[in-house]
């Protein structure tokens, strides 16, 4: 009996020694990895989205890496291949294309990696584990109402659209037009895509202003294009005559609203979306499975009347 106890004690001692040796020799077990795939880092708003998601994932105890898809579905596909091969446990995903990105999400799903969409929707309910999306339509209904209130019920205006394949572009435009089109005196004389890009927003606005010098307002599908449009107006001395409306809640635009340069924007709360998505991924890794497929996040109207409440990509 004594021999058995001695053998048992020896085995336990050996096991403890082995674990202790492994920990001192090789350090702690490696952390699980979370990938943050962002449509483009060429826009400060998406940089905030990606950085916040990464920071929250790290806070929750993971290694996190940001991948830039550069608004290119092929680059996005390569990012997914890399992520799947590298043993990531979850993907926080800002898609480049609502239809074109589905295949990438399906590949990750097939590899057993959950995908949590942030801000940009994919047109499928059987691919991502959950999609946390700004309520773009409702936000642009509010912007449309404010547009009519401030521009008036008559006059010419232009619209700058975002990336044409993206649902956000369509939902923002649809929400805005669901209001503005009810006022027949408001005439849209130009509608062009500037790909959510500031430089293109400037370029497109310059050409619109040449063809339509009498416009009273420009509705832009995001804040980067709004800043580009504003720059174009400044260069021809029309920044006081033409009202610019954006969407996102980017810091520079919120400041521009406070300074009376931009009329309004829709605050999208990228930090809230990014943090919650990282928390969803953490919950998934810990065993939760019942996630709502679509989680809308409200968009709030930011104007000169309430701008003091907003800043740093959210509410103060």
């Amino acid at each position: 009996m004594k021999t058995i106890w001695l053998k048992f004690a020896a085995v336990v001692l050996a096991a403890i020694t082995t674990v202790a040796f492994a920990q001192t020799s090789f350090g702690q077990a490696p952390k699980a990895k979370i990938a943050v795939v962002i449509s483009t880092l060429n826009n400060p708003w998406f940089v905030v989205l990606g950085d916040t998601a990464k920071a929250r994932a790290i806070e929750l105890g993971y290694d996190a890496t940001i991948f830039d898809s550069q608004n290119d579905t092929a680059k996005e596909a390569a990012n997914f291949e890399n992520i799947i091969a590298s043993g990531y446990k979850a993907i926080l995903f800002n898609a480049t294309d609502s239809s074109g990105s589905i295949a990438n999400v399906m590949k990750a799903k097939a590899a057993g990696i959950p995908v949590f969409c942030i801000d940009r929707e994919i047109n499928a309910t059987n691919a991502a584990t959950s999609q946390m999306l700004s309520d773009n339509y409702a936000g642009c209904v509010k912007l449309g109402e404010y547009f009519v209130k401030t521009v008036g019920k008559e006059g010419e205006y232009a619209e700058l659209l975002g990336i044409l394949g993206d649902n956000n572009t369509k939902n923002r435009s649809a929400g805005f037009h669901s209001v503005v089109d009810r006022f027949p005196g408001l005439k849209m004389v130009a509608q062009q895509s500037a790909d959510f890009d500031r430089a293109k927003g400037l370029e497109v606005t310059e050409s619109i202003l040449q063809a339509h010098p009498n416009i009273k307002a420009i509705f832009c599908g995001n804040d980067a294009m709004a800043m580009g449009a504003y720059q174009a107006l400044v260069s021809v001395g029309k920044d006081k005559q033409v009202k610019v409306f954006g969407f996102d809640g980017a810091d520079d635009v919120v400041k521009a609203i406070a300074e009376g340069k931009i009329a309004a924007t829709g605050m999208q709360f990228p930090k809230t979306m990014a943090r919650k998505s990282a928390e969803f991924a953490d919950e998934y890794i810990k065993g939760k499975r019942d996630f709502a497929q679509k989680v809308p996040v409200a968009v709030e109207l930011v104007t000169k009347e309430n701008v003091s409440k907003y800043g740093d990509y959210g509410k103060k």
Partner: peptide
């Protein structure tokens, strides 16, 4: 429920 609609444009069209 928004989760029932693969494309949010359809869900938004319901509002209108």
């Amino acid at each position: 429920n928004p989760s029932a609609y693969p494309n949010s444009q359809d869900f938004n069209d319901i509002s209108a």
